[in-house]
Amino acid sequence: MLVPTSHGLYCPQGDFFIDPRRSVARAVITHGHSDHAYRGMDAYLCTQETVPILRHRLGAHGHYHGVRYGETVVMNGVRVSFHPAGHVIGSAQVRLEYAGEVWVVSGDYKRQADPFAVSFEPVRCSTFITETTFGLPIYRWPSPSVVAAEINNWWRENAAAGRTSIIQAYSLGKAQRIMGMVDASIGPMMATSAVHAMNTVLADAGHALPPWKNLAAVDRNEPLTGSLVITTGIDAALLRRCKDAATASASGWMAIRGFRRRGNHDRGFVVSDHTDWPDLMRTIRETGAERILATHGSTSAVVRTLQEQGLQAAELEDVGMERTE
């Protein structure tokens, strides 16, 4: 029902693409990250929550059609619906049903609690296309409350030492998740331009974000001591503005010491919006799928593991090469 093409994942029966990379007529979008939602599609279908994000990122005048989680849209006889993926606000798995067969495309997803993204719901299907960004058993995320305590301690210690805390995070998803998981009583939260813009879009759409300040609007002479600055990138200008700063990044890759040390940040916190290994295995079981296609990251390790468990599994990209569908 789905084949990988140079433009993206294509559904011939329904004549639409999922997260296409090049211009097509009809695009079904799992979530608003730039490697999933590209410019130049004639029409976009996504969740209601994703519409304002696409409008902000891809331009106000595109044709965006938003639907509720669970609502079904029929495209050339293919029944298409969106189900929570827990990755970022508005993120969805896409369920396709045609002639009694059900496929689910996971998009990016996580099973951990997120203060703003609706929690992942497993969807029964016969073929499950899953992301495997962190598809190795070394990836087992610590619980969010443990990481929140680590970030709070770090922020508190920096504040006590007269330093500014700078944390690097994606503007959509990670930034809001961090704002929602830390203890806002420690100090003010500041957002640099991209984070502030995204926060504004989400707050306007009705998401109850904790209070933050737009760093660009803060008087240049006002000291930032004790603040937590959330930014998409740390550059020399930002470090000068913060004077004495401690820097951190928040990502699943921070689970590995080598990455942490090479990252040039003082700290690395393990905060991932992707599924870890135990949740990946659990999710695959819960979908009841008899065939698993893996995409992104450690696809081969996941496929081989599933095959050893007696499941039918392949790397999604290979499926396209064979053209057997």
């Binding site: 190795l136 058993p137 590995i256 080598g258 081989r304 593991t305």
Partner: peptide
């Protein structure tokens, strides 16, 4: 960790440190 030996090797290659690989797998 209840995994296959080849998967252990994949993990070790990703981490690059035996002590750390084991810690991540079985802590």
């Amino acid at each position: 960790a209840q995994i296959s030996p080849w998967l252990f090797d994949e993990c070790y290659a990703a981490v690059g440190d035996l002590a750390e690989t084991i810690a991540m797998l079985v802590h």
